[in-house]
Design a protein around this nucleic acid. Sequence first.
RNA 1: CGGGGUGUAGCUCAGUAUGGUUAGAGUACCUGGUUUGGGACCAGGGGGCCGAAGGUUCGAGUCCUUUCACCCCGACCA
Length: 567
Amino acid sequence: MRFSKAFIPTAKEAPNDATLASHIFLTRAGFITQVSAGLYNFLPLGKRVLRKIENIVNEEMSSVGAQEVDLSFVTPTELWEESGRIEKFGKELLRFKDRKNNSFVLGPTHEEMMVNLVKNRITSYKQLPLNLYQIKTKFRDEARPRFGLMRGREFVMKDAYSFHSSEDDLDREFDLMEATYKKILTRLGLDYRVVEADSGAIGGSGSKELMVIADSGEDTIAVCSKCEYGANIEAAKRSARLEFPDAPQADFMKFKTPNVNSLEDLAIFFKVDPYYLLKTVVKRAVFEDSSEIVFFFLRGSDDLQEAKALNTVGALELVDVEASEIEAIGYKAGFLGPLDVEDVNCVFDIDVKDAQNIICGANEDEKHFVGVDLSVLKDAHFADISEVKEGDGCPCCDGELSYTKGIEVGHIFKLGTTYSSALKAEYLDENGKAQPFIMGTYGMGISRLVAAVIEQHNDEKGCKWTKETSPYMVNIMVSNIKDEDQLSFGELLYDKLQSSGVEAIIDDRKERFGFKMKDAELIGFPYTIVVGKELVNGNVQIFDRSTLEKTEVSKDNVYEKIMGLIK
RNA sequence: CGGGGUGUAGCUCAGUAUGGUUAGAGUACCUGGUUUGGGACCAGGGGGCCGAAGGUUCGAGUCCUUUCACCCCGACCA
C-alpha cells in the first residue's frame, strides 16, 4: 500500500469523549470512527486488524474440527420466546417488525438459532459430536455503551456451539476449546489468564472466562501468587482460614449496645475483631413474578458477593432495601440477627457454619447477643456468598490471592441441555430413545480483541501492534520524496518485500520527517525502515516500535535483516 | 433506568453571567513560495442551519419552553 493513496485519516487530537488508550489511539490513528453511541466504522487499517484476528481464529477453530457457518443476523422473536430468554435479555434485544408485521430481533448471541439449525438435521448419536461456529456482527442495545470498541452495542463475535451425546464428551470439547482459545491469544501476543467465572444469565454448569490482563479491564479477577488458579471476583473461592484473631470470651447473653449504629461501632464497642461479628446484608430478591426479602449473614470481616448471593437464591436480581421495608416485616435495621428468625429467607455464608464466640444483633432495639454458638443453626441454608479479598488463601494451593483487572475476551460455557430442552432439539441415542443435545457454547469478542491488543500494547506515542495483529508489518518511510535516490531505494525495497509476501506500506507522502515518524509511531507498525539522509553513506535505519530503538543498517543488508526480524 | 455534564468549522475549544458590527482561535484542508531528521515557515484562500423545533424581542450563538444526541458516575452487562 502507498501511504499517499491510503485512507488513513490520522489526527493530532482525540475526540474528547475517548478515555481509554485503545479508543483514543484507534481513533487518532485512523482505525475506527464513531457513528453513534456504541457504533463504530472500521476504516481500512481497522478492517485489516479485524481480519487478521478473524483469520487466526478461523485457523485455530478449523484445526480442531469446528465448522464455520453464518447464521442470519435478524432472528425471529418466536425462538426467543421459546427459550424464555426474551424476558431475561430484556431491553438489550433490539426488536423490530418487518413490513408484514412479523417480530424480529437483531441477534445478540445465537444459541437459539444454532439449536434451531441443528434440530431435526442432526438426528442420531452417530452424527455427534458437532461444533459449529461463526464470526459475525452482534447487536446488544447496551444501557450504557462505553470505552470505544470495548463495550459497543454492535460488535463482532466468534460464537461456537457444540453438541454432544454425553457429559464426558462435552467436557472433552470444553477442554479442547480452552486449549484452542489459549493458542489464539498466545498467537495474538496477549498476556492473559483463564479464570473461573459466574455463568450469569446464560446458565449452565461450568464456565471459564479468558481475561486479557489490563488495568483498564472492567472485570476484577482474583489470581493466585503460586499456582494457575484464577477466578472472576464473582466466582472466586478461597481456602479456609488458618490464623484467627483473638476470640472474645463471653457466655451467651443479651447485651445493651446504645448508640451503636454500624459494624465499626460494634467492633469498637466490644473491642473485637470484626471477624467475630455477624454482618447482615438485606436484599430484595426479585423473581419472574414475585419478590421477597432475604437476609444474608456473613462475617463482619467479609463482604457480600452479589453474584454469588444471586445464584444462591436463584433470583433474577437483588435490589437494595430501605430500612422501612425491614421494619415493615417486623425487624429492626441495625440490630438484625439470625436467632428466632422464622418468616424470612436466611442465607448463611459457609464460613460461619458452626462458628463460635459470635456477636450478632438480637432483633431488638439497641440489643446484641454475645457468645453466640452458631452450630445451633443446623439446617440453615449455608452457601459461599462472601467476596474473596486480597491476601485470602488460594483454594488450590498454599498461595495467596491478589486482585488484578482483566478484559473479558472469551467465555466458554458448559450449557448442558438448557436450550436443547427448551427448544425440543433431540437426537436418538443408542437405545433409540430421544435425548436433548448436551451443549457447550464458546464466545470470543473479535472486535473487543482489537481494543484489547492496544490496551495491552501502547505507550504515550500510540499503538504498538503485535506481529500477528499489525495492519502492516513493515513501513518504509522515505524521509524526503524529492530526493530521487531515497525514493527509488524505498520503492525498490517496497517491491522486494511485497514480492516476498511481506505486508508492507511505503510512506511516499510529501511530508516532513517528523510528521511521518509521528504517524508511524501513532499507527504502530512493528517496524519502520527509515530511508533518509544516511542513504548517501549507504545506510538506512530500522525503527523498532516496541523498543523505540533505531538501528543503523547497510542498505545492502536491510532486506535480510528485516526478513529476520519479522519471523 | 437514576444522577451529573456537554452540544459553535473535519478535530480541540473561546464567545453565552449582562441579547447589539459580517461568529472567532488553534489545528486540519486548498494555492503559491521557502524549507527537508522529530507534527516547519511566509502569504493568500475555502469551510458554520452556533444540535433541532417553537417562543420572547426592533434584534437571539447568547433569554424562555420543548425535544434530540453524545459523554461521565451508578444500576445493568451471554
